[in-house]
Design a protein around this nucleic acid. Sequence first.
RNA 1: GUAGCCAUAGCUCAGUUGGUUAGAGCAUCAGAUUGUGAUUCUGAGGGUCGUGGGUUCGAGCCCCAUUGGUUACCCCA
Length: 455
Amino acid sequence: MSKPSIPQGTRDFSADVVRKRNYIFSTIKNVFELYSFEPLETPAFENLETLMGKYGEEGDKLIFKILNNGLDNPDKEKQVREDFEKILQGKNTKGITERALKYDLTIPFARYVAMNHNKLTMPFRRYQIQPVWRADRPQKGRYREFTQCDADVVGSVSLLNEVELANIYHEVFMELGMKNYELRINSRKILTALAELCGGADKMIDITIAIDKLDKIGLEKVKEELQQRGLNEEQVNIIENYLNITGSNEQKLSAIKSLIGSLETGRQGVEEVEFVFAQTKNTSLIIDFTLARGLNYYTGIIFEAKAPQEVKMGSIGGGGRYDDLTGLFGVPNIPGVGISFGVDRIYDVLEELNLFPGNLQVSTKALFFNMGDAESRFAFGIMQQVRSKGIACELYHEAAKIGKQFTYAEKKNIPFAVIIGSKEMEEKSCPVKNLSSSVQEMVTFERLADYLKNL
RNA sequence: GUAGCCAUAGCUCAGUUGGUUAGAGCAUCAGAUUGUGAUUCUGAGGGUCGUGGGUUCGAGCCCCAUUGGUUACCCCA
């Protein structure tokens, strides 16, 4: 038997990590609830066809597929072999795999809305906090199992939704103490207009993939990549002008108007960005026309939340508007907009910047020392009374040396020791010792619960 | 999918041009101290050097393969 292990890109979370993660979850959840979103949970796995083709070509490759059961059934051998041939040719077939782990929360949500749209009160605002899986090669800030926190509004075209979502980002990151986070915003329509301006609407994806890398590889390399992707010199020049738009948000807006304002799509896109920007002066929104985002279902405003620059984590959240996501599931004309928080990356950032509050690790308030058989039986009774008042405590499991019990309490971060031996049983009071200050006080059994509660 | 780096005690790591019985710190356990810990002192346990093969009189060290981890590319939270 080899050493036990867990699959690459997955993690066990020990108590202190779980507590820190829960702190992030509850911060996000509280803000979602405050903005009147309702919870939803969907299955860990979906029918493969629900997910395939929704995330672009690369995305499809990263979907974790689940092997069908019963493939070893001798009666089906011929069919299974034929189906496997299709797999070898890069095709999917229900004969081998028909279910897959979910890749994000947006598409399962769209599927849910498509199935239930006539029961839902529109606009429908839902939030969802669940793990997702990607068959990606793990590296810094990238896991194969990670948790997303999504909030989406469907059934409304109002840009007020975008404004609210931007505020949610701001509120969450402020509460987490991540003051220097960045929220970047753009509109897919502006990118579409740029492609039109270049005379190749079909080149939209090539253009966006290339310009999205601007801050990473620089202007020259972007131009090279554009040429490799088949754009001619004139087209590259147009894009260069576009990428050279810099300055304050206001300056960028006026520059983009003169460049693509003549096109209808461009004008719409600029208006959207301008509206959201005007309504979110309280947040630190950055207009960034190079922001593209990979998921190809976005049609309007797109968001990307980035970690403070000093941590080199990149994207810690993203989202945007999609006009017709449920159309993929046969229910057209339900527009929506949503955002996502990447908890695992946020965790890494908070850890690196030392932003977790210090009081997350205290759960058990007192350790009752075990001073012998009869003594511990008695102490157990006292402890139960204390517990019934809602105070978490623990009785040491055996009559060990007192020093050992102190060490145990210290390691488990238990702040107080309660010592009940034969003397205390007679006197009906016991010492309560503060382990960090070494200060100790005699407290009657009657007052014990209240005393601990007020510490 | 492509490429680089790494793998020695529970953890972090030393380990010389290939040379006898592979070390340290921390952690653990026991004792000094049987009702008051964190400092100190003493002692103990703990290793198939990731795995398999090869070169050599001799391999933790060199070579090949393999597995796992990690970082980067692609893509993404």
